[in-house]
Amino acid sequence: MMWTTTVLLLLVPHLLSSTETGNSANFNESDIVDEDFSDAPVKGQKVAGGVKGRDTCSIPCDITVKLLRDEKHSICGQLQQTLLAFGRSTRKLIRDVMEEQQRALDILSTQVTELTTKVQTLNSEVQRSNTEMYSIKPVQSHGRDCSDIKDNLMSVVPKIPSGIYIVHPENTDSSFEVFCEMDYMGGGWTVMQRRTDGLTDFKRPWADYVDGFGHLAGEHWLGLKKVFHIVNQKETRFQLHVALVSQDDVTSYASYDDFHLDNETQFFCIHLGRYSGSAGKKSH
């Protein structure tokens, strides 16, 4: 390079006269100066090379800084736009998932409502069916209990239907309705209790069990007072028969050959005779 060659020439000793030396020095200095100016970078001109350690800048620093700043702002803007787009897509995905879950919940809620309505309708139909099945109007009293009614009607009616009848036990001032079972085991049974479909709540206070509850044509409890009047008539003896049917249609029964109750002051204490049947261990 021009600068390096000049430096080497200055280091070579010469045997010249002082005049020559001065001229030579002047010449060389002039040459060096000319070379310095010739090698100085012109603004906007790219320099091919330089001395190690010297900073060279082909573009002014303020422009470079501005370009770098603009490039940084551009990258930051692109990154911000990317993050915003990602946020929007994520929110849309979450919103779509929530809407889908809400639609599923709405469908499930509708199905549950429809099922509840169907169950209520079915219960109503079962109650109406039971009522229609035993919708025999009460007739005038024909006896003191269902067995007495059977004996009285057998001579005039060839087939005595099961249903609601009016009985008037001895030593009572009033008559009341009962359901008489005229088909099971020869008929003549006064039904004290019937539980079949669970539509009637049997978790009742003591007063309800004293007076009775439910519908005679369906599930019911006749009432301790009425049962007491029936089974404590003079010169009568009653048998208690309990028929059971399991959910898988297995039947069993418990029968007691004697049955009567104490009065209300003794809380209708029950008295049972000899046990027979298939319902398991007997109790007294």
Rank of each mutant, 00 (worst) to 15 (best):
M2D: 08
M2L: 07
W3E: 08
W3F: 05
T5R: 04
L8R: 10
L9S: 01
L9D: 00
L10A: 12
L11K: 10
S17Y: 00
S17A: 04
S18V: 04
G22I: 13
G22H: 10
N23E: 08
N28D: 07
D31S: 12
D34W: 02
D39Y: 10
G44N: 05
K46H: 09
K46R: 14
A48M: 11
S58R: 13
I59K: 12
I59E: 07
P60G: 12
P60E: 14
D62E: 15
R69Q: 13
D70Q: 14
I75M: 11
L83S: 13
G87V: 08
R88G: 08
S89Q: 10
L93D: 05
L93T: 12
D96Y: 04
E99P: 03
E100L: 11
Q101D: 11
A104D: 05
D106H: 07
I107Q: 12
S109Y: 02
Q111C: 04
V112L: 10
L115D: 08
L115K: 14
L115I: 10
V119Q: 10
V119G: 01
T121Q: 13
T121K: 11
T121W: 04
N123M: 10
E125Y: 06
V126D: 03
N130V: 05
E132D: 10
I136H: 14
K137G: 14
Q140A: 14
S141H: 09
R144S: 12
R144C: 08
K150F: 07
D151S: 15
N152M: 13
N152F: 06
M154T: 15
V156P: 02
K159Q: 15
P161H: 06
I164S: 05
Y165P: 07
P169Y: 02
E170K: 15
T172V: 15
D173N: 15
S174A: 15
S174Q: 14
S175T: 10
F179A: 05
E181C: 10
D183T: 15
G186S: 09
W189G: 07
M192W: 02
Q193H: 08
R194E: 07
R194I: 07
R194F: 03
R194C: 02
L199H: 06
R204D: 03
A207C: 02
V210D: 06
V210L: 03
G212T: 01
H215Q: 11
G218S: 15
H220S: 03
W221V: 01
L222M: 04
F228M: 00
F228G: 03
H229T: 06
K234V: 03
E235V: 00
T236H: 03
F238H: 02
A243C: 00
D249L: 01
D249H: 04
V250F: 00
V250I: 06
V250R: 02
S252G: 01
N263F: 00
Q266P: 00
F267A: 09
L272F: 04
G273L: 03
S278P: 00
A279P: 03
K281E: 06
K282E: 11
